Amino acid sequence: MTEATSVIRAYRTQDTFSNQARQAAVWQRIAAEAGPVARPTRQLPLPMPRRRLARVLRAAAVALPVGLGSLALWYNQEQRFQTAFGELKTVVLPDGTSVLLNGNSVLTYQRGWGKNSREVWLQGEGFFRVVHLNTDPAHIKPTERFVVHCHDLSIEVLGTTFNVHNRRKKVDVGLVSGKIKLTDTAAIAPTSLVLAPGDYVEYAAHTITAKQKLAHPEKLTTWSKRQFVFTNARLVDILQTLEDSYGYQIKYADNAIKQLKIEGEIQVTGVAPLLEIISTSLHVNIYQNGKQIIVH
C-alpha cells in the first residue's frame, strides 16, 4: 500500500492526460510497480472456554422458559371488537363464523381461538352465523363446539343462526335456525335448556324463563337493517333501545309514563318516525335536543 501510494502521488505531479490509451498505459505501470496484493489469512474461531460455555448454557436455560411464557401470553391475548353507538359491524372469526354487532356492543375472544375451543364473550347485541364443523352429532370434539358467554349464561351451538341481546343484566336469546343449548353456569346444579327454531327465552337473576314461540323469528334481526320493530311494547322498553344501541339520554317527567304501552306492532326505519308514532299513539309530548330526549 505504501508503494502504491508513492507511485500514485508521483503520477499526480505529472501533466493531466485525456487520451484513453495513455491512461490505460499509466494504470498498467501502477499495477506493475505496486505488485500483487497479499490476501489476509482467514483465522478459525477459537474454541469457547468451558466456563464461558457454562454461562451461556445457563442463560439459555433461563431464556427458554421466559420465551415460552411470552408465547403463551401472546397465545392467550384477548382479541376485542367494539362498536360505537349507532354503528353496525360484522366480525368474521378465524373459522369463518360471522357475527353482526349492534351499536354499543363488544365481542372478545382469545388469539389462540379455535385450537382447543371456539369460545367468545358478548356484551351488547349480536347476530351469529356459526360455521358447522361436526359431522357426527354423537361424537362432538371440543374444537367443534361453539360457545357464547353472556355473564353466567353459556350458549352452546353446532351450526346455526341466532340472536343474543345481553344488556342491563338480562340476556334475551332467539333462535332462527338450527339448535342451541343454554346453560346457567353459576347455578349450584347447572340447568340447561335446548332451543328449537323460533324459540325465545330470557335469562335474568340466574333464571331462564319458559320458552316462547315466535311466529316470525326473522324479526329478531330487524335491527341489522336499522329498523325498529316492537309488538305490544311498553314505552320504557322502546326507548331503552335508543339508549343502549344509539346513545340517547332519556328523561321522563313522570315515572308512570314509562309503563304506557302501544298496542299492536310498530315497524319503522329511523329515530324520527319512531318518536312521531310514540307521540301520536300515547298522546305524550317529546322534546329532542341532540342526543337528549325528554318525554312528558
Results as ranks from 00 to 15, higher is better:
Thr269Glu: 05
Ser18Leu: 06
Lys225Trp: 11
Ala32Phe: 15
Thr143Ala: 14
Tyr252Ile: 09
Trp223Ile: 00
Asn134Tyr: 12
Arg111Ser: 15
Arg55Ile: 02
Asp237Gly: 04
Leu242Val: 02
Arg226Leu: 01
Ala138Tyr: 03
Ala32Gln: 12
Leu73Pro: 04
Phe17Asp: 05
Ile250Asp: 11
Val148Asn: 00
Ala215Arg: 09
Thr97Arg: 01
Lys179Gln: 15
Asp15Trp: 00
Tyr11Cys: 00
Thr16Arg: 10
Asp244Leu: 01
Ala215Asn: 12
Ala34His: 02
Glu3Pro: 01
Pro45Ile: 04
Leu88Thr: 09
Val26Tyr: 14
Thr269Lys: 07
Tyr203Val: 00
Lys89Thr: 03
Arg111His: 04
Ile262Gln: 11
Gln82Leu: 02
Val131Met: 08
Lys115Gly: 03
Gln249Ala: 09
Lys169Asp: 15
His149Val: 05
Leu274Asp: 08
Leu93Tyr: 03
Ala204Pro: 07
Gly290Tyr: 12
Thr183Leu: 15
Asn289Asp: 14
Val62Met: 15
Pro142Gly: 09
Glu3Tyr: 08
Leu195Ile: 03
Thr231Gln: 14
Pro36Ser: 12
Arg39Phe: 14
Thr185Ile: 13
Ile293His: 13
Gly264Lys: 05
His139Lys: 14
Gly86Glu: 05
Glu144Ala: 09
Leu107Phe: 12
Arg118Val: 00
Val26Met: 08
Ala187Ile: 06
His149Trp: 10
Gly270Cys: 04
Pro36Ile: 01
Gly178Tyr: 12
Ile266Leu: 10
Thr280Asn: 12
Ile262Thr: 05
Ile286Ser: 13
Asp199Pro: 11
Tyr11Asn: 01
Leu122Gln: 10
Thr222Gly: 01
Pro94Gly: 03
Phe85Pro: 13
Lys89Arg: 14
Arg129Ile: 00
Phe162Leu: 11
Phe146Arg: 00
Phe162Gly: 06
Ile238Gln: 07
His165Glu: 09
Gln123Ile: 05
Ser6Val: 07
Leu57Arg: 15
Glu202Tyr: 01
Val106Arg: 15
Ile266Glu: 07
Ile30Met: 04
His296Thr: 00
Gly96Phe: 03
Asn166Gly: 03
Arg12His: 06
Met1Cys: 06
Gly290Leu: 05
Lys258Ser: 06
Leu73Met: 14
His283Ser: 01
Trp121Phe: 04
Phe127Pro: 05
Leu175Cys: 12
Asn19Asp: 15
Gly126Ser: 10
Val99Ile: 04
Ser192Pro: 13
Val236Leu: 05
Thr83Leu: 10
Leu73Asn: 04
Lys141Gln: 14
Leu239Ala: 03
Glu263Lys: 14
Thr108Gly: 08
Pro137Leu: 14
Asp244Trp: 08
